[in-house]
């Protein structure tokens, strides 16, 4: 399978096209199982919004009212997947091999592709981007138009601030009133386990949380040498370290933290998928889907 170069991910300006392209490659040979029209009932008109397909515009109504209306149908679906994207400042971490590619950009492409796959099997999806400066929400929905809106919402995101504290997260819980599956995309660089705690609480609330951890290769290998002046994007000031002296300690601490994190999620029967953003997106997505497809009805893919 021909994969997409990291540079392409970094430089893309059309998430919709890119995600459809990647998903198309992954679905090669798969049965088009989506049943168009089945189970879809007209529910309401709603005014046209950017991102809606013009095919959905009700032209008769336009002729009558001289305004664009879109027919909105209630789509019965097996599943609603809520994508939670951590947009704290650490997600702006660029790859050291492909400096133009950040974790956030990778996450955009990854989420858009996943949602196109979900759309292809008729599932609905929503997006919540979190940091302590506020939430960016795309309500639950499905279809091509919704996917386009998702792409637009993803494009607007910027990484800044920290992971929200409990008080801010409290405002989020009403979103999970309806049964849903959640996917938490983050780097899981947490100080007091706040991100995995959130996932655990979702799990406890019966909203299984499938974790995707984004890393850059340098975080796993620490290939630096010499004196380093390190800026932590989520902490003020600089840390000066001798890379060579620190490497062994860092690798040990990092591996321990990864192991700890993986075991926490393993306990929730939601294995952690860690992907390096320099690797092909297709394999990362495939690994994620394979890791969770055994979950029967709760699974994706």
């Amino acid at each position: 399978m021909q994969t997409i170069e990291p540079l392409t991910l970094a430089g893309t300006r059309d998430l919709v096209w890119l995600s459809r392209h990647i998903a198309g490659g992954m679905l090669l040979g798969a049965q088009q199982s989506r049943r168009r029209g089945a189970g879809i009932e007209f529910q309401q008109y709603r005014s046209y919004q950017p991102g809606d397909s013009i095919r959905q515009i009700d032209w008769k109504l336009f002729a009558r009212s001289d305004r664009y209306f879109v027919r909105e149908a209630e789509q019965e679906s097996q599943m609603h997947v809520c994508i939670l994207l951590d947009t704290s400042a650490s997600m702006a971490q660029p790859s050291f091999a492909v400096p133009a590619l950040t974790k956030l950009q990778y996450a955009r492409c990854w989420i858009a592709t996943l949602c196109w796959l979900l759309h292809n099997q008729g599932d609905r999806f929503s997006l919540i981007a979190l940091n302590d400066r506020g939430f960016e929400r795309l309500p639950e929905g499905g279809g091509e138009a919704h996917h386009r809106q998702l792409a637009l919402a993803l494009d607007r995101l910027e990484a800044a601030g920290h992971w929200p504290d409990d008080r801010q997260l409290a405002g989020l819980w009403p979103q999970f009133d309806q049964p849903c599956q959640t996917v938490l995309v983050s780097d899981y660089f947490e100080h007091n386990g706040e991100i995995s705690d959130f996932a655990a609480r979702l799990h406890a609330a019966g909203r299984p949380c499938l974790p995707l951890q984004l890393l850059v290769e340098a975080e796993e290998t620490f290939p630096f040498d010499g004196e380093l002046k390190i800026r932590n994007p989520e902490a003020p000031g600089f840390t000066e370290v001798g890379a060579r002296q620190q490497r062994a300690d860092y690798l040990r601490a990092f591996a321990a933290a990864q192991k700890n994190l993986a075991s926490r999620f393993a306990a929730q029967q939601c294995p952690l998928t860690s992907v390096a953003i320099e690797r092909p997106l297709e394999t990362g997505l495939r690994r994620f889907i394979d890791a969770h497809s055994i979950h029967g009805s709760a699974g994706i893919g």
């Binding site: 650490s90 997600m91 971490q93 660029p94 050291f96 780097d187 660089f189 100080h191 340098a218 975080e219 630096f224 010499g226 004196e227 380093l228 002046k229 390190i230 800026r231 932590n232 994007p233 989520e234 902490a235 600089f238 840390t239 000066e240 370290v241 001798g242 002296q245 620190q246 300690d249 860092y250 601490a253 990092f254 933290a257």
Partner: peptide, 25 residues
């Protein structure tokens, strides 16, 4: 003797500066 290279590294959390590097510079 170059001044230390400056990088942004989100995983700096696991780096524990044990001693003052400025003296060793």
């Amino acid at each position: 003797r170059r001044s230390p290279r400056q990088i942004t590294f989100a995983a700096a959390h696991w780096l524990l500066p044990k001693h003052r590097r400025s003296q060793k510079r």
